[in-house]
């Protein structure tokens, strides 16, 4: 009984939301030009995914996101861990990170395009920059929080520097690193979309705004549904990977 109620409640609010969307539009309370019915928009997103024009933009965005995000992971996690080990690097980087923390990273796209031209390079770079700070800080805090007694006892048993790094520090800081990755994931999506909305050349952000400016409101909603789907999909994958990797935690 209680379990059934739980499932009912979990489904209830999203269902109410979608029914409200559908109903308001169908009943004409809100003009369907401004708010097309949910089913129509959903059908539109299916059509979009199948179309060649849209998949080109989808591919451009995901390709840049994948490269930028991976570079940021590979670059910032070692830096963060090394920051915890070396006082000198910490003293150098910490003020820089504090000062650049509130800078809107996606907003740097015009400056980066001034430096690197109009190709993919500035768009990948802006993603790398956007994810950099949360990843470095989480890796730093993770490695900083490793109990020194663990390292000592490992050393006492004659384990080498490298093994200490890979078998103690890295695994012990993984839970913190993962929470940083989750934050970076959210930020990276904002940066991808935001920078494409500003630079308006290709990609999902461009496509979304283009549909708005051409007055194709139905398409705007369809693209929005796809973007939300991507966000949820990436988050689900992340949770899956985290559960697999952090089985022991």
């Amino acid at each position: 009984m209680l379990k059934e109620n739980r499932i009912l409640y979990t489904v209830l609010s999203p269902v109410i939301l979608f029914v409200l969307w559908e109903g308001l539009s169908r009943a004409g309370v809100i003009s369907s030009e401004i708010l097309p019915p949910f089913t129509t928009s959903l059908y539109g997103s299916c059509q979009l995914v199948a179309s060649k024009e849209f998949s080109k933009h989808l591919l451009a965005s995901s390709y840049r996101w994948a490269i930028g995000f991976s570079i940021s992971l590979v670059l910032s996690i070692p830096i963060g861990i090394y920051m915890a080990r070396s006082k000198r690097l910490y003293n150098f980087l910490d003020p820089l990170l504090t000062l650049t923390y509130p800078v809107p990273k996606a907003a740097m796209i015009p400056i980066l395009m001034l430096w690197m031209g109009a190709g993919d390079l500035p768009k990948v770079t802006v993603i790398v920059i956007g994810c950099f700070i949360p990843l470095v800080i989480s890796a730093y805090h993770g490695a900083q929080g490793v109990e020194t007694s663990l390292i000592w006892s490992a050393r006492a048993m004659g384990i080498g520097e490298r093994a200490v790094l890979f078998r103690i520090i890295l695994p012990a800081s993984l839970p913190t690193i993962f929470s940083g990755i989750r934050m970076a994931l959210a930020i990276s999506l904002i940066v991808v979309l935001g920078s494409e909305m500003i630079a308006r050349q290709s990609g999902l952000g461009y496509y979304l705004f283009n549909s708005l400016e051409m007055g194709l409101y139905e398409m705007t909603y369809s693209v929005l549904i796809i973007i939300s789907g991507i966000g949820l999909f990436l988050d689900a994958i992340f949770s899956l990977v985290m559960r697999k990797v952090l089985v022991w935690a």
Partner: peptide, 11 residues
């Protein structure tokens, strides 16, 4: 939460 909210801006 996982949806990039900036996508709602056009709407």
């Amino acid at each position: 939460f996982p949806i990039p909210k900036i996508g709602i801006y056009p709407v």
